[in-house]
Write a protein that binds this DNA or RNA. Structure first.
Lengths: 113, 113
DNA sequence: GAATTATATTAGCATTCACTAATATGATTG
DNA sequence: CAATCATATTAGTGAATGCTAATATAATTC
């Protein structure tokens, strides 16, 4: 895999690496939803959700279609759903280790503040 | 899945969402390696690699064992390798879309600067 | 045990990120 | 066409991230 590709790949994966975005993905995993439906689902802030949707779209993870004044978002394809499932399955295996990380209260094991 | 779990899950996935860390994972995918071997492999900075290794370890993605003055790092288990393969497979499907993102030169589709 | 080798940690800095509040766009409805 | 509803965009801010250079730790070798 080329150098550039690895950057793009990292970006793609970064799409999944945020709590709010994971919630959005769970919310639309089985059926497309409008922005307001998602906002309701997550009890979130409309602007915030819109920005995360733009992020997910930019990462190629979700797609959108307009129908009148509504915009429906859904996973790009079935493989994305499958990837989510596998991420979940692998995560469950290591969850305890990760949660037990010294600084789990701040979730910043990667680089200390 | 609980609220906290989702935070931890996001952290776990964030482990994969960096170019250098993806390179490290590729480097040790099939066999354990010492830090210096990885540094050589990536032609990277020792401090930088060490920090990324700590991150990957904190995320539960890799494990380490000491042998004399060397520390060997390897993937935590076979499922991590499998997850990497599936990420790769799904990524290939959407790669062109992601790369074509308006701002692909800076890889920051998520939040505009 | 002094020097060397392997790895980790710290500090500082510039960049990216996620969030909120405010505003803009765009379609719909009365 | 004015008002409303749905969504997107912008600006500003604090926190997290990734990097480098310098220093610390710990095991090894001479």
């Amino acid at each position: 895999m080329g150098k550039f590709s690895l950057d793009v790949k990292a970006k793609f994966i970064r799409g999944f690496s945020d709590k709010t975005r994971l919630q959005i993905l769970e919310s639309i995993k089985y059926r497309e939803k409008t922005v307001s439906q998602i906002v309701d689902d997550l009890k979130g802030n409309q602007s915030n959700i819109s920005q995360h949707l733009a992020c997910l779209k930019g990462c190629g993870i979700i797609v959108s279609r307009q129908e009148g004044k509504y915009i429906y978002y859904s996973l790009r394809n079935a493989e994305i759903a499958q990837l989510l499932d596998i991420m979940e399955a692998v995560f469950v295996q290591v969850e305890e280790e990760v949660a037990a990380c010294e600084r789990n209260d701040e979730l910043d094991c990667c680089q200390k503040p």
